[in-house]
């Protein structure tokens, strides 16, 4: 890939005609990110546009929650105000978690490196002739991250509600033993949803905007002891923000896949009680 004469090969700089002298496998990390993110985007796009197989009693796919469009019976716990919506119900709601992740400070680092090669790795020259960062449209819109965070908190609450509903008794066709269907139910789907919501909250609450809102914006920690304490907690979570971003990405896809397999009858729910 060609370097430019306004970067590391500028006239005043040490004359070295390669874009990097790094000898380690610096390309492995951005390549991994590229492959995994691309796989997720392809999977999520297919599932979002599919518009079916997102509900298997009592589980609702996180891609479709809250289900506000013309959803199947039992899936809409918050009504169907967009029942007129002709496309998949996922498209109504996915903009919020998608926007939250697209503007996330961690994901920005990951996709700027892996997809835009800006830069591909530290000390490796980027291939672009000019660079304006996040100062112009559309990247200046990254500044709305905190608005997506507000929405993500609401989505997180809805997904928490869905997880509670995943303990609901199963209908008769799922009965075990002598046909008992009442009481609390727990299956592998419930367990997956618990793990998923835990990662979703860890990711949402470790957000840099959350850290700023709860206390980071203050100049005097000493005058706001409660907010300072909250800030220290969020700061601790924030150190692993990238990890929660990855884990929650996987968990949300796995929950959706499990529900898809249940809804299509490919597998039966593993029921614990």
């Amino acid at each position: 890939m060609a370097t430019t004469d306004h970067g590391v090969t500028s006239p005043t700089r040490a004359r070295i005609d390669v874009r990097t002298l790094r000898q380690d496998r610096w390309w492995l990390s951005p390549l991994t990110t590229f492959v995994v993110f691309t796989a997720f985007v392809v999977y999520a796009t297919l599932r979002a546009f599919m518009g079916r197989d997102y509900y298997a009693t009592p589980y609702l796919s996180p891609f479709y929650s809250p289900c506000l469009g013309d959803c199947v019976e039992g899936a809409s716990d918050f009504g169907q105000p967009f029942a007129w919506w002709p496309l998949s119900a996922a498209l109504i709601i996915l903009i919020f978690p998608l926007g939250f992740r697209m503007t996330c400070y961690y994901y920005r680092k990951a996709y700027y490196r892996a997809f835009w090669l800006s830069p591909p790795a530290c000390g490796v020259a980027e291939p672009h002739g000019s660079y304006s960062g996040e100062t112009r449209f559309p990247l200046i819109l990254q500044n709305v991250h905190r608005w997506f965070w507000y929405a993500a908190v609401l989505v997180g609450l809805v997904l928490t509600f869905d997880t509670v509903l995943a303990f609901r008794p199963m209908p008769a066709e799922y009965a075990v033993g002598d046909g008992e269907t009442s009481g609390v139910h727990m299956g592998l789907g419930t367990l997956l949803m618990i793990v998923n919501i835990a990662f979703i909250w860890l990711y949402t609450l470790s957000c840099h905007s959350c850290r700023h809102i709860v206390g980071g914006r203050l100049r005097h920690f000493s005058r706001h002891p409660v907010r300072y304490r909250l800030w220290t907690w969020v700061s601790r979570l924030n150190e692993s923000h990238g990890r929660w971003a990855w884990y929650s990405l996987f968990s949300v896809a796995i929950v959706d896949l499990y529900i898809y397999l249940l809804a299509t009858g490919t597998i039966q729910d593993v029921r614990f009680f």
């Binding site: 400070y105 920005r108 680092k109 700027y112 490196r113 800006s118 830069p119 530290c122 000390g123 660079y131 304006s132 960062g133 996040e134 100062t135 990247l139 200046i140």
Partner: peptide, 10 residues
């Protein structure tokens, strides 16, 4: 030029 930074953390 804070907006020029795209937080790639190098």
């Amino acid at each position: 030029g804070l907006g020029m930074c795209n937080i790639t953390k190098c």
